[in-house]
Design a protein around this nucleic acid. Structure first.
Lengths: 227, 227
DNA sequence: TCCAAAAAGTGAGTCCCGTCACAGACAAAA
DNA sequence: TTTTGTCTGTGACGGGACTCACTTTTTGGA
């Protein structure tokens, strides 16, 4: 486990803070660890904490009362979450769950908001991130309203490829670090239907699959499948 | 058509600006009028303007290439839009269309951003609004993933009732100022399916409909229909 | 008041996809 | 190796909702 001030220093959101501000902030901050599948934020919780991801990965999920889930985002180290409920006082609108062993810095509501008022630059960064998430949410809505499962899957695969894919001689190759069930939750369908959609895309020679290694062999084909 | 400075003065977003700031801002601002069904912002436009609604109403819509549309929000006077593309430089992620004769104040990118940097309070307000919209977007995603048409319709009706409904002796009464097609676009379905869903809810005695006057006679029933 | 055009309701047919049930495949533990 | 449990693939089935075609109602202009 690393020191809070070391961890805070690396977070882009806080890069405009002075050394002394960082120092005082780190005194209030604590670091928590979560195991894989442990829930960090429950939907409906009162929001009194701000989180910044140090190591590991988390998923932001919407769930219904029968345990079905939809993954709206996956966050990497240095990204933050939990800010929304702090800013408007409403209860959490989504849950956050660790998808691997994860360390987070936790700030109390007041400590976070204090920095926030004295640092206009920080406000701008928060706005930029919220804007990006809102855009992303709109894309999700678009997918769900206008596309069938294959189309949504195509979009998810292209996203994954854009993030971690490597250009090979026969296409863009990337490794999917999700189970099929999780991939289904990312697309917004069931595991069974996802399996079939993958096969459909493979039959059409848009992608090639071996275990968790995917190759997009026909990018334009996949993109057209989105509309 | 009213004067820009008068119009600006009323906008909550700008209430922290000094008189002189408002004055200089109003010199750069202009007022535009749009007829019903006129498009104010096209998705994919480059964003170089900020809009504040003076009179009328607009809808924020996602559209596919065949003209199908989904309404993600309806804005009233004093609310603003067009800020996202200004803040992160990405193209517009949704279109905005007047649903009645509408007047808007238009600010140029730089004029808006300038106020923005000198007024930390304004940043906070923008963040609050973005947060609210993100919450709303998450609720939309939830609806689309977990609910059937009747459930989504129930949610939309409850929202409309909460906004404009009046308590009557036999339930909450409200007037729907949308065509059935628009209501369908609000729910995320087709006009035909919407008709049937309305009839279903009416048969179950959750609502009563006469033309565009709806009465929710069984609120808890409707709410349960959402899950 | 009448008529044309738009909006709304209805019926039939189709298909996507969710559900259920089960069979392999794979990994970790005994 | 065997065992056990989890993950994944496959088949069959049913239902919700979209599409298309048509009728009925409403609207608003002449």
């Amino acid at each position: 486990m690393i020191a809070t001030n070391e961890a805070l220093k690396k977070v882009p959101l806080f890069s405009n803070l002075s050394a002394s501000e960082l120092e005082s902030l780190s005194k209030e901050a604590s670091i928590r660890e979560y195991e894989k599948n442990e829930t960090i934020i429950h939907k409906q919780d009162e929001g009194d904490s701000f989180f910044s991801l140090v190591s590991g990965r988390v998923k932001v999920v919407l769930t219904d009362d029968e345990g079905k889930e939809f993954i709206v985002g996956i966050l990497q180290p240095l990204e933050f979450f939990g800010e929304m409920a702090l800013l408007d006082g409403e209860p959490r609108s989504a849950s956050v769950v660790a998808i691997e062993k994860t360390e987070v810095i936790v700030l109390k509501r007041e400590d976070f908001l204090r920095q926030f008022t004295t640092n206009p630059e920080m406000a701008k960064k928060v706005i930029a991130v919220l804007g990006k998430r809102l855009r992303h949410a709109n894309e999700h809505i678009e997918s769900l309203v206008f596309l069938d499962v294959c189309g949504r899957l195509a979009r998810v695969l292209l996203d994954l490829a854009a993030e971690t894919g490597k250009e090979m001689d026969d296409g863009i190759e990337f490794t999917v670090s999700h189970s099929r069930t999780e991939l289904a939750n990312l697309v917004g369908t069931t595991r069974e239907t996802l399996t079939r959609a993958l096969k459909t895309l493979e039959t059409m020679s848009y992608i090639r699959i071996r275990k968790n290694t995917f190759v997009i062999t026909n990018t334009t084909g996949l993109k057209n499948r989105m509309y």
